[in-house]
Design a protein around this nucleic acid. Structure first.
Lengths: 245, 245
DNA sequence: CATTATTTGTCCGTATGTATT
DNA sequence: TAATACATACGGACAAATAAT
């Protein structure tokens, strides 16, 4: 006989965690859009029937996850991917003086094709699903620095192909604004490899030159994979900066 | 006439920040040693003449910085560098199944010499200070993977040379236990480079093979530089894993 | 094995300070 | 100036985990 009341979540889960989940759900469901202001803490506390302190603790967590921005005297806002913080949170190349500059992108190729089993698996799609592949070269200070391949679900992002000419430099912002998909975290594997013929041509270097390969899976707020991105970078004048604290 | 009451810190600095600084000072001054238990929150609140809530907020910050570990029912403890979390917080190489394994180290050379101006500068030392240089090869699964050079202030860490035979794999733990110096953060610059003759011999690869160079400055709790470390890694069977969240 | 004391975790309500509009 | 919103601070109550009795 099946359990009619399966305790899938512990019944004694802390209130502030429940509140946090409710706020997350509301964000996901589009109740508030990126950049929009939330109701005041007082109002939210009343709405969720908790004290201000409990509500603050829920918001504290979301602020720590960079999903909400608080500003004293103004209000709390849904974070967007067009702030400096968010832009550079996912972009780590700096020059020798540790200066960051967002690269300009040139789309080389954009097409749909069947994904390999590995690719589909990494994107959380069924085997041999159709995927969208974007290849672009990213320039800093006029010089090509990154040879990049981006893979997406064609089902979800298929109409991106029609506007390949107007693709912005900051794709995560596009996903958020046009596809209601917020990239909240990512996992990267970084290797040193030799430039292949394509890299050599794109980056204006010799075949075999050591380059940095960054292989990243970007995840949404539910930690479902959204995008696979392989960035192959010259690191003679730039480096990948990582701050551990 | 000099200002007798220079407001070096804003007078209206939040209480919990002041408390946090006092606790930090106490840790630095050795009032509690790594692994030791702090007094209870009640006691600390009384000692600092603040409410429990204010003290909790101060500790919250220190927990977020991984300097204090809280355990419900037991107490709060000064964090040590011998926990899995701390060990792998500063070690990022994983195999193709994303498994982590701490490498075994073999010291190749250890000596003192005058530092170059760049080296002294990065270590926060006066020009042409004497520095301690440790060169070692780190093996995973019996194979050499990392060719590493470690630079330290010879004034502070000079007697390390006498015990080069018994150097542990985890130097940060040694700094903490034997030199009362806790590494709290680090800044890394990562590049792809070609193996030089020394790398080739140490890592059993051809000269010119692409390898990953991780150039790290480790900082103490006051963000003063403690150690400069250059790790040159094979990434054919391993990769640098970075999780952004 | 049950009880009790200790410690952190959660939650509440209120008051006051500070930044913004 | 006044209203609004978040930030800080206080103190108390109960829950949950742990360790000792």
């Amino acid at each position: 006989m099946p359990d009619l009341f399966p305790p899938s979540q512990p019944l004694n889960e802390p209130l502030y965690i429940q509140v946090k989940r409710q706020i997350l759900d509301a964000i996901r469901d589009g109740r508030w859009k990126p950049g929009e202001m939330l109701p005041s803490e007082q109002q939210l506390a009343t709405e969720f029937s908790v004290s201000q302190g409990t509500l603050r603790k829920a918001i504290d967590d979301l602020v720590a996850q960079n999903l909400i921005i608080r500003q004293q005297g103004k209000g709390s806002f849904i974070a967007t991917h067009n702030t400096d913080h968010s832009l550079f949170y996912f972009f780590h190349l700096v020059d020798d003086q540790n200066r960051r500059e967002l690269p300009q992108s040139t789309v080389e190729k954009i097409r749909t094709r069947r994904g390999t089993s590995t690719e589909c698996n990494r994107l959380g799609l069924a085997s041999s699903s159709t995927i969208l592949e974007i290849r672009r070269v990213r320039n800093i200070g006029g010089s090509p620095v990154i040879n990049e391949t981006v893979l997406l679900s064609a089902t979800k992002f298929g109409d991106l192909k029609q506007r390949s000419e107007e693709l912005p430099n900051t794709l995560y912002q596009l996903y958020q604004e046009q596809y209601a998909t917020t990239v909240g975290s990512a996992v990267e594997g970084i290797r040193a490899v030799g430039a292949n013929e394509d890299d050599a041509q794109a980056l204006n270097i010799e075949i075999g030159t050591p380059i940095l390969e960054i292989d990243r899976v970007a995840l949404d707020l539910d930690r479902r994979p959204i995008e696979v991105r392989v960035s192959r970078c010259r690191t003679d004048n730039y480096k990948y900066l990582n701050v551990l604290e």
